[in-house]
């Protein structure tokens, strides 16, 4: 076997790699923000909302968790486009991924909310806090603190899974790598570089979550213990 490694041929395409990395990061960033907002909201509805709303959220969560992300993306980008609604591809991709991650986030946050002891709610109630105040100050914050490590993992997974969106035409990192590969036929080198880049991205996302956690949860910052 005589194979000459030629990473230079791949690295020549660095502008594409940078562009792809940037797109992946942006996609992850926006999906993280919207995903956590949707997830926290749906988790509150699912645990404390009226019956019909709980069922609606349940339906959303189960539907998303039990169908492939690929089909969800195709549906949102091509299915809806065929009905005449044309979204910029990156917007469609962000929406698809947000809807997907929102469902998983809902389940994680719900577990956190359900871990809050009844006595906490009673104490808040007896101090005169309204239901909304109780949720905001006594339920959501400790719930998020408790499930934060699970959330961070889920969002690293989201970043990795965003590579699927290359197949609907999003020029994120994997999409760009595919282009380089078809230009250079340097498959081995391309995927080694790609793997390293994803690894670095994952470390960055994890570090971002760790820093955010320190900012959001002063108790954890001070004591370093899980809640």
């Amino acid at each position: 076997m005589t194979y000459e490694f030629d990473f230079a041929a791949v690295l020549e395409y660095w502008p594409l790699l940078v562009q792809g990395t940037w797109t992946t990061l942006r996609l992850t960033f926006f999906c993280t923000i919207f995903g956590i907002l949707i997830g926290a909201f749906c988790a509150v509805v699912r645990t404390g909302g009226p019956g019909w709303a709980r069922h609606l959220v349940g339906l959303y969560v189960e539907f998303i968790r039990n169908t492939p992300l690929l089909i969800q993306s195709y549906f949102l980008i091509f299915g809806i486009a065929s009905m005449g609604v044309r979204l910029p591809i990156l917007v469609g991709a962000t929406i698809a991924l947000t809807i997907n991650i929102g469902a998983y986030t809902t389940e994680i946050v719900r577990a956190g909310i359900e871990s809050i002891h009844r006595g906490q709610l009673e104490a808040a109630e007896c101090l005169g806090l309204s239901r909304v105040q109780t949720y905001l100050h006594v339920v959501i914050r400790p719930a998020l603190e408790r499930v934060y490590p699970a959330l961070a993992s889920q969002y690293v997974l989201l970043m990795l899974a965003s590579s699927i969106l290359s197949s609907v035409g999003v020029e994120e990192l994997f999409g760009m790598a595919n282009r380089i590969q078809s230009d250079t036929f340097r498959n081995f080198e391309v995927f080694v570089v790609l793997g390293v880049l994803y690894l670095i991205l994952a470390v960055i996302v994890r570090a971002g979550f760790a820093l955010l956690g320190l900012a959001l949860f002063p108790r954890r910052r001070k004591l370093g213990t899980p809640l």
């Binding site: 002891h117 006595g119 009673e122 101090l127 005169g128 006594v138 914050r141 949860f217 809640l227």
Partner: peptide
């Protein structure tokens, strides 16, 4: 009312536990 199981808010300091209701309510 004070309960057998204290029911302090674990993510807040002593001062924050005490300040929460005066501030919010």
């Amino acid at each position: 009312i004070v309960f057998q199981s204290y029911n302090l808010f674990p993510h807040l300091t002593v001062a924050e536990n005490v300040m929460l209701a005066p501030r919010l309510v």
